[in-house]
Design a binder for these strands. Structure first.
Lengths: 282, 282
DNA sequence: CATATAATGAAAATAAGTTTCATAGTTTTC
DNA sequence: GAAAACTATGAAACTTATTTTCATTATATG
């Protein structure tokens, strides 16, 4: 069932005059409705209890009470998620505050990234992973860490892959790609000139290109066959966008998990052969 | 104000007979209370509306209605966080499911990690970062990625630090440490023999040791002066613990942010000097 | 222009929640 | 050890909130 506020919004077009009054009031401040009685709302909006009850029923509730508690549930969730958004770290913050805010920031950017990811794109990327002869990874700085993470994963799944640490070597790798190869280019900002060059080179040589970046409109994205978007996160201090790599890793997780799921038997077999310690961890 | 269910639990000891009946009913299924009237609850528990209202007031609510809406809020949040926990990925899952579940898993492990982190420990670790002559980082596999991440951060803040890629070099680094140096050892499992050796060596040479691990009871943890705990995450498939590195990165974020906050002016100045691109990103 | 239809509010009816008060059991005091 | 004071409790009266009914008005339809 859709959320109540969404249903309200859907219904506006069919609403009568009194109902429009009501809806406008509800949308302006849904939270305060929870603390008011049906009579108070009726008075505020120059309507009547009867009209309110009718509206509640049209929205799929049993009555005003049911409406209130459904709304309470929604508002609780919304408030929680809004809480997260406006927490900037200041010098006054205690260590406890920092633990809370930093974690919430990271969670927020995961949520945002999730909303940006399109199943179709993931599916297309997984197919490329399956059908490409080789997979080459590209990244610098923090994005190199993400590339390494995906590299370790692909290794374990026995995908033929390649990642060079320094950018000259990466560029040479790009130059050697051919039709049937896949390049995955990671650049959070989408502005890194070196990555753009790698993407161009890969493309020019007939390879497919996937970009993992926040910059869906960038030159890098334009160069790519598929773009896996990452949430743009504000800075914490001016210390660089922190959550970015966590979001990028989340994209990597999604991509890899989707890949494994489509190649289940084979991958499970591989994992058995490639885990290093009993629990596979380090 | 404490949560309602907590307050209920606190109150049990002072409760009379009828009240105990009530409380037991409330605790058994708080959610269903939301859909019941005061009379229904009275009947179910062989008590009376009056007793219920009194209990609500003792718990700090204005009456039964207020009690219900406070509870609704709490239940909504709880249900949300419980929803997350039981989502295992199966072969039947669509790509859309995978996007959702993988992200939720990662969020869940961030939440758990947050709860494990103790402000005192962070503060102590930040002090070590401030006062140590040098900081050396240790890690292998996925944990090496985390180490590299912290390394990049410390570099930007002009902390004298060191990280070697291969484990032999890491071990030699540990051997060269002295009193006044700091070693930060990352091992998610806490079982990696190589990391244990590095920690022991560092300790033996008089250096302080911080461990970032899920294994608070491990030999590695025993060797460390401070342990920064990371949530233990179940595996997604058998492909290795995915969320672990995200949690580890979160710990790194917290540690580094706390450090920056205590050395604000200096770090901000440094960040100005060390950012490579306009937005500092890659 | 008459008639059907939909929207609305006033007021009655129903239901919910709160308060008061009487009772029974318990503890304290002399 | 009995009277007094206190506490916990539920029945019933009271208050408040919600829902339903029904009459009125406006609007569309043939």
């Amino acid at each position: 069932m859709k959320g109540l506020l969404v249903r309200i919004d859907d219904y506006v077009q069919n609403a009568g005059e009194a109902e429009k009054q009501l809806i406008s009031r509800l949308q302006r401040n849904p939270e305060s409705v929870l603390r008011k009685t049906i009579k108070e709302i009726a008075k505020e909006t120059y309507t009547s209890p009867a009209t309110i009850v009718r509206l509640c029923k049209k929205l799929g509730c049993k009555g005003y009470k049911d409406f209130q508690s459904t709304l309470a549930y929604e508002v609780a969730l919304f408030r929680e998620s809004r809480d997260i958004a406006f927490q900037k770290i200041t010098q006054k913050d205690t260590v406890e505050d920092i633990i809370y805010k930093v974690t919430k920031k990271n969670i927020e950017s995961l949520e945002t990234t999730r909303k940006l990811l399109e199943p179709k794109t993931i599916t297309a990327c997984v197919k490329l992973l399956e059908t490409s002869r080789t997979v080459s990874l590209f990244g610098l700085g923090t994005s190199l860490l993400v590339a390494r993470d995906l590299y370790l994963k692909l290794l374990r799944a026995d995908v033929i892959c390649n990642l060079c640490d320094d950018w000259h070597a990466q560029f040479l790798t790009a130059r050697n790609l051919h039709t049937g190869d896949l390049a995955i280019v990671m650049s959070y900002s989408g502005l890194t000139e070196e990555m753009l060059q790698c993407a161009k080179e890969a493309k020019a040589n007939g390879a497919k290109v996937i970009a993992i970046t926040r910059a869906v409109e960038s030159k890098l994205a334009a160069e790519a066959d598929y773009v896996l978007p990452v949430a743009a996160t504000e800075l914490i201090h001016r210390s660089g966008a922190m959550s970015s790599r966590i979001s990028q890793l989340n994209v990597v997780d999604v991509l890899f998990t989707a890949y494994v799921n489509r190649n289940y038997e084979f991958c499970m077999n591989q994992f058995g052969r490639t885990h290093i310690q009993k629990d596979g961890g380090t």
